[in-house]
């Protein structure tokens, strides 16, 4: 054969290479590939678990957010209620205080009226007594203009003093 091509040599090389390829496949290629696939599956599983945990954590976070939002709304609602109740109580107390004040003022006014009436009544009585007393004294004395004037002034002074002494 040209170029020293020899079928026996070719088949020997073929036989040799097939044994090598088969041996390398069984001893090296397949175990290493199996290991790499196993590792890849392991990391994919870890990745999947991490994604699941992430999703669960996100769900919890959403739930907590919703609860926080509900709590905020509840707090705002209760604050508003408390403010309304406080305002109502304040108005009620204010009104009650106003009523008490009005009542006190009314009572004071009535007491003052009563005192004034009593004072006027007392003054009338005193004036009557003084007039009666003055008339009696006049009846006992002669008519004298100077004495009349002195008597009259005395009456006025006594009336003024009585007025000042009364509380």
């Amino acid at each position: 054969m040209p170029l020293n091509i020899d079928f026996q040599q070719i088949f020997l090389h073929l036989f040799n290479f097939i044994i090598l390829a088969l041996g390398l496949y069984l001893l090296l290629y397949r175990p290493v590939v199996a290991f790499m696939d196993k590792r890849q599956a392991h990391y994919e599983e870890l990745d999947r678990q991490a994604a699941e945990k992430d999703a669960a954590a996100q769900q919890k976070l959403d739930a907590y957010d919703a609860r926080l939002k509900a709590a905020d709304e509840e707090i705002q609602r209760r604050n508003a209620d408390a403010n309304r109740q406080l305002e109502a109580k304040r108005q009620e107390r204010l009104q009650r205080a106003q009523e008490q004040a009005d009542k006190l003022v009314e009572e004071a006014r009535k007491a003052a009226e009563r005192e004034r009436a009593a004072m006027l009544e007392g003054a009338k009585k005193d004036i009557a007594e003084m007039v009666v007393s003055a008339a009696g004294k006049l009846a006992d004395k002669e008519i004298d203009p100077a004495a009349d004037r002195a008597l009259y002034d005395r009456f006025l002074e006594e009336a003024q003093a009585a007025q000042e002494d009364r509380p």
Binding site: N4, D6, Q8, Q9, L12, H13, N16, F17, I19, L20, G23, L24, L27, L28
Partner: peptide
């Protein structure tokens, strides 16, 4: 055989030994 056959067998033997 050609020396390359002996080479091939030697290489195959060594590679299979290392692989094992």
């Amino acid at each position: 055989v050609n020396p390359s056959v002996a080479s091939g067998l030697t290489v195959t033997g060594l590679l299979l030994l290392v692989a094992a």
